[in-house]
Design a protein around this nucleic acid. Sequence first.
DNA 1: TTGTAGGCGTTATCAC
DNA 2: GTGATAACGCCTACAA
Lengths: 348, 348
Amino acid sequence: MKPRVGIADVAREAGVSMGTVSNVFNRPEVVAVRTRSRVLSAVERLGYVRSESARVLRGQLSRIIAVVVHDLANPFCMTLVQGAEEEARRAGLAVMVYTSPRDAVDEARCLGSLTEHEVRGVLITPTDNSDSFTAALERAGIPFVLMDCDPRHGHPQACSVAVDDVTGGRLAVQHLLDGGHRTVCFIGGPQHLAQVEQRRAGAREALAQVGQPASALRELVCPAMTVAEGREAGRRLLALPDRPTALFCTDDLLALGVLQELSEAGLRVPDDMALVSCGDIDYASAASVPLTSLMRPGRMLGSTAVQLLEAAPLLLEGEHDPRQVVLTPQLTVRRSSLRGLHASAIGY
Amino acid sequence: MKPRVGIADVAREAGVSMGTVSNVFNRPEVVAVRTRSRVLSAVERLGYVRSESARVLRGQLSRIIAVVVHDLANPFCMTLVQGAEEEARRAGLAVMVYTSPRDAVDEARCLGSLTEHEVRGVLITPTDNSDSFTAALERAGIPFVLMDCDPRHGHPQACSVAVDDVTGGRLAVQHLLDGGHRTVCFIGGPQHLAQVEQRRAGAREALAQVGQPASALRELVCPAMTVAEGREAGRRLLALPDRPTALFCTDDLLALGVLQELSEAGLRVPDDMALVSCGDIDYASAASVPLTSLMRPGRMLGSTAVQLLEAAPLLLEGEHDPRQVVLTPQLTVRRSSLRGLHASAIGY
DNA sequence: TTGTAGGCGTTATCAC
DNA sequence: GTGATAACGCCTACAA
């Protein structure tokens, strides 16, 4: 085919040396304006594109960051990727996506890809067993940022972006208490999910603040965050003696399932049961009753993670000052939590 | 820091020459088994990783493919990315993600990133104005595959993977007709969406097959695929004189909105109104009534696209044999379309 | 089968 | 401000 046009061709076309062409791109301020524009027009004419490979080979930082998430089909993970992509684009970086390795072989492959491409940094949503992964990154000298990690479990040395789910849980339950409810049912996901435990802690705090005993928080545990489990939880809720009048679901899918079950049983939301959900705007508005929702800022998690990654190399060599950002979730009030008087009082 | 360990170090450690080490990776069959294992163990000991940059610079194909989608937060686009990532992983390729450029500047930036990284190929979901983009790729000699494109609008020279939405529409409406319905309301999205028009065509075919006049298909057009527009469509549906008894929504979000409106008006699905939706499994099961749904195989679209990309270079030089794969959507029957007798007849 | 040497396109360093 | 030159790490002939 046609031989690739390189920096040498541009230099010849513009009547300058290779070094000057390189300077036009990398240190524009050092080149005379006239020369620069001559070079630029030669670039245009010849359709020259820089070779990222050669740059990196020569020792430059690569312009690739990697994002490793549990599941590319999960809406929340998606918003992480979305936020990362937006911010990366702004910074002139390209984004590679990977799903979290499931076994050692997988992990080795992923790590291999990351290191061979010499990615500039990695954004990870940590799993139970991602420690060996981050250790390997550290060994390889690849910077990384944890996204949506458990703030306590702590990789205390690592940069991270987390969501303050304790505050989130508190906000949600406070809102219900403000609505006049006195007992709240907490529908949680799998026990081991740190984020869920934190929301529970926040919920307890809120009750304690108004002097309610711990027993005012009834709990139902779901083995998974799915609509089906939500329905099951709904059935258990209905069977509860002394049924609470308010509900805090720690996941949109659970909330949707509960809602289905409640309405089949003839209970009305919010009149017979107030409901606060947690998660994503789309799911919340897809429900048959618009859901009041604790929104977790996934996009911002992603974009902030990129910013941390970019800021990290600026730190002094060997210094341990990992920035650990914690974002606060927002409570978006919709109809599912507002009954009668309370609703009209605040204008809904 | 520590100097990078290169092929030379491995060679020294293993007591062979650089060429042999290279051969171990690139043409293993040409190296003696004993030598090979000696090299491999040296690699292990030293923690050697190949430099992708050097490989590519030397003229090898890069191991990166790019996926360009409209919106990284859109569930369907996500399934495309997911499918692509899975297949790419199998093939030892890394995946870069981009969102479709919105203007010329954006497009130039995206193209620049693609060409500078010398990606091996690109997967695109075409937009109204993506022709200049594909043209530029062609000029740059970067192979690409169209994903979920309009099979008619035809980039006839390009590889593509599409969904046969005509058949999809036919399947959906045939199912409703099988249920005994005789008039069907078609709730479509924006007119210019090729996929929607095709589903409409399929719906008409189904009616024609049972001898129903074209007027048996009532149509409501929605300006966007959102829950809110679905509610609006629901209101219009309720106001329709001579209201049909069956409904085909060309999008899950629309279906969810319609469903909300119908149940508020006291209509029961499927008893008073049968409903077939179209899209994604999660949304369908999140509805208050499980939705019968025309499933579009997004993941397979993505993985097939990668396969086409990999197969393309095998074609003879200059030959025009773009493979254009068309996948058939599946109708998944759930409760929303099955009333009384019909339901029990097929075991629901 | 193994070893040797040249060059891929850049950038940094230096002398001008 | 500009021009020449030497790496960066690998792959592929080609020679042994």
